[in-house]
Amino acid sequence: MNDIITSRRRVLSPWTPLLGIAAILLAIGVFGVTQSVKQREAKVDQINRQILAEQQTMRVLDAEWAYLTRPQRLQDLIAMKANDGVMPPPAVMVARIDPTPEEKTETKAEAAAEQPAKVAVAAPVPTPTPTPVAVKAKVVAKAEPKIEAAPVKAAPAKVAAVQLAKKVVPVKVATVAPVAKTPVKFTNAPKIASNDYVWSPKNNDHRPMAPVMAQTVSFPKYASVKRAGVAHPIVE
């Protein structure tokens, strides 16, 4: 019996309450950590859900983009706009230019092939568009003396180039040079900026519509794309 009393006394030793308090504190700490982990996990899940919704929206927009840029539609648009006089067809789509004198060696010709922009010539012949000065200067600087003498118009330059050509490099010609300082003006054109394609009201009836999101996205305004995403029911 003495032993038991002794052991009881040991249980009630002054360290016991301290240990108890420590255990309680630890428990509270663990509880706190668990709770904060739970909260963070909830946040992660929420973010994941948001990612999923964004991905869903992206898929819709991808589909819409593919639909609106399908070759048949682009071709129709070009035909339509060309008839309107809004977007005159470029006189030269693909030009062949003699490699410039300093690029006549094999390696430089290859370099030219990699950077076609270097030797680009721009000038749609039948338009009232003034050829941007910057482009003119560029061509003059790069061209051979013969070409230099000629006025910067695509047709004569092309003929001269073909005559001179030994190894020719096909070059895509920009109708509107991005470096142009004076804005390009077309007759009948309402307004054209690079990121906001304005449709003439005359043609709105013919505009091909995407079946899924046609009313949502007025292509390609970014703001309305955003709106489309929010309106999508999966985004909450």
Binding site: V37, D45, N48, I51, L52, Q55, Q56
Partner: peptide, 22 residues
């Protein structure tokens, strides 16, 4: 990981982002 319910369709890919099961 705390046994929170997870999206079955989520997995960490190379892009380290959630992938939508479609």
């Amino acid at each position: 990981e705390g046994a929170e319910p997870r999206f079955e369709s989520l997995h960490a890919g190379n892009e380290a982002s959630a992938v939508l099961a479609v």
